[in-house]
Amino acid sequence: MATESRPNPADSQTVSRPPSALEHLWDRCFQALTHVAAWAILVLLAYILWKIGAKAAPAIGSYRLGFLTDSIWDAQAGRFGLLPEIWGTLYSSLLALIIAGFFGLTVAIFLTQDFLPPRLAMVFRTVIEMLAAIPSVVFGLWGIFVVIPEIRPLAEWLHLHAGWMPIFGTSFNGPGMLPATIVLAIMVLPTITAISQDALQAIPYRTKEAAYGLGATRWEAILKVLLPTAAGGIFSALVLGFGRALGETMALAMLIGNSNQISLSLFSPGDTLASLLASHFPEAGPVEVGALMYAALVLLFITLMVNVLGNALLALTQRRISGVS
């Protein structure tokens, strides 16, 4: 580390002296430069909002709010509606959140509550973190060639025997809500695990000791003391995981079937806002680009709301926990 400055014989006699005028000038410039850089981030967000908003403005003018409730996307007829995509985005993200929340929270408990010796826990943590490093397209490819064939027998059985339930109501023909949701859940799992782990680790050790001291079993301590104490952090983990799921693009574009329909069935193809953008943008004409910009604005708005909420909650609970301990 470079913490200790190396002794330089040349300036050993004049180690300490007041800064010269030139150095003061340079100091001013450097500070101004950092100020500009900090502002650049704020300007960037504003510029993103403005640029997408400006491109979407004509479409907003001609379709207005009906855009959000219409369910037809027909570039030839110039009629665009976003309801199936909004439905698909929320439905797939919520399902993924339920699966990933369950697994992610269990893994977070598993890793923080001494189920494994520290060294093994470290290895397991790395395995979960590595999931976050796998690119989205690779998950998409894996979904097409591994997940879809693997779940096909089960899905066909479910449709045959439980087809009266709306969630199994349509036959399984490959790409659709279920494979998309499974892969989406795997992709948000590391986010949820990481933030929940932080929340569980932030609990003062004496809280756990007190629970054990009163005779609680390990799981009584976890379920009745630790989880309620970490509830705020865990909730923000879920919200941030949800935000990530909403914006996830490539794996969904490859797995969800890109079909403009609203269905409760897990086996029917669907579409999400992000995958609509990915699949339609490259070939869109000028009118459709306007509509897609409107769709991008809707996605931007939803994810910003969710992320602001998640981060605000996280900041709030962190302040409360650190205030207590």
Binding site: A38, I48, I52, K55, T249, L277, M293, A296, V308, N311
Partner: peptide
């Protein structure tokens, strides 16, 4: 700035594409 940076880490990557396309 800190808050905006945190919010932007959860920014959907496709929107970065849409933004740069427009800009």
């Amino acid at each position: 700035t800190r808050f905006v940076a945190k919010v932007l880490t959860g920014f959907p990557s496709i929107l970065a594409g849409v933004f740069v396309y427009a800009a």
